[in-house]
Simulated assay, not measured.
Amino acid sequence: MRFDDRVAVVSGGANGIGWATVERLLDEGGRVAILDREPEAAAAKVTERTERDATTSDRAAVFECDVMDAASVDRAVSGALDRFGRIDVLAAVAGGDHFVDDELDEDHWNEIVSLNLHGPVRLIRACRQALITSRGAIVMVGSVNGVAAYGEPAYGSAKAGLTLLAKNLAVDLGPAGVRINVVAPGTVRTRVWEGQGGPDRLAPLYPLGRVGEPADIASAIAFLASDDASWITGVTLPVDGGSLAGPLVVMDHLLGSQE
């Protein structure tokens, strides 16, 4: 019950890693504001969970939010504060990528950077004062693409930016008692793999012999957001099944698959 009497804001909370994080925080006693641009999907999952745990209806609330729109973020965070009165944790999960023929296309870069780098900044800006008041914690979801060159340069560059963002804000917000860290997942079984043959074809790349599950990432987010990590800030934690331990093997496979 590490989050008993604490309030978390989770962006991208309707699906995948975001929903797994919502469930983990609720399981540990927290109250959660779920921010997502698909509020109906989030609300349906809250209703389903309430059938198993009646307290969910009082401890979870859904707010429509597009992290690429600063006004939308501000409205959602304001709604969360009105509902719960405080914010102790910000989990900036919302993000993503899609493939384009020209990886240097300007519109593509603007979109991907706005979603994956500027989105967390918008959330932090909106939550900053509440987090200072609570001496809270921020966890952003990066990627192994932001640590090593696995292709997708716009996405990788945006995710890499989170590492330096976390380091800078760790210094700036540390004196106020606010911690900020990043988790960097490898391949995770989420809906992004629909129509792509599924993620399990990449399992041989991982020393642990499998791809990740959303709950694997949620566990790391919960750790970094909790008092168990009270002396950890400015860190990027790979949660990647060991892929970064053998990047040459991964790159050899990826290059071979393109031949």
Rank of each mutant, 00 (worst) to 15 (best):
H253A: 14
A154Q: 07
V211P: 04
L162P: 06
S157D: 00
S78V: 02
G85K: 11
G234P: 04
R31K: 10
T233W: 08
R83M: 03
L224I: 02
D200C: 05
S230Y: 05
D58V: 02
L35C: 08
T233L: 03
T47K: 14
A33P: 06
R59P: 08
D66H: 11
L131W: 04
D97E: 10
A245N: 05
L237N: 12
R122L: 01
M68P: 00
D27N: 11
E40T: 14
H98W: 15
V93G: 09
R179C: 03
D36P: 01
R135T: 07
A218R: 03
L115D: 13
E51Y: 01
W109N: 12
S157Q: 02
H108W: 11
R189V: 05
V89D: 11
A229G: 08
V100I: 13
P153G: 14
A158S: 12
D69S: 08
G242F: 08
G136H: 03
G174M: 12
T133H: 07
S114D: 15
A94N: 07
D240M: 06
G234M: 07
A54S: 15
A61P: 05
A80E: 01
E259C: 01
T163V: 15
R210D: 07
E23P: 00
A137F: 01
L35F: 13
D172L: 12
R2W: 12
R189F: 01
R75F: 00
P153L: 13
L208S: 03
D66P: 04
E152F: 13
L104G: 00
D107V: 11
D97F: 15
R2L: 15
L237C: 10
V113D: 04
L254M: 14
Q258F: 02
R31W: 05
A33Y: 09
D227E: 15
I180G: 06
G146S: 11
A80W: 06
A245R: 10
A42C: 11
G161L: 10
L169V: 07
E111V: 06
G79M: 10
R59A: 12
T190C: 08
R86N: 07
R179M: 06
L224F: 03
E38C: 01
A126D: 04
R24T: 13
D69Y: 01
G177N: 04
A44L: 06
S11F: 07
D97G: 00
E23K: 13
V178C: 07
R31G: 00
E213A: 15
S134M: 02
E38S: 14
R75T: 11
L205Q: 13
I138N: 06
I221D: 02
D74W: 01
G85P: 09
V139W: 02
A222I: 02
S243W: 12
L205T: 10
Y150C: 01
D227L: 02
G146A: 09
F84M: 11
G246Y: 00
D227V: 01
R210H: 10
G85L: 08
L255Q: 11
P199W: 08
E111F: 08
C127T: 15
A148G: 04
T21R: 04
P153S: 13
I124Q: 05
T21I: 07
T163F: 04
G174E: 13
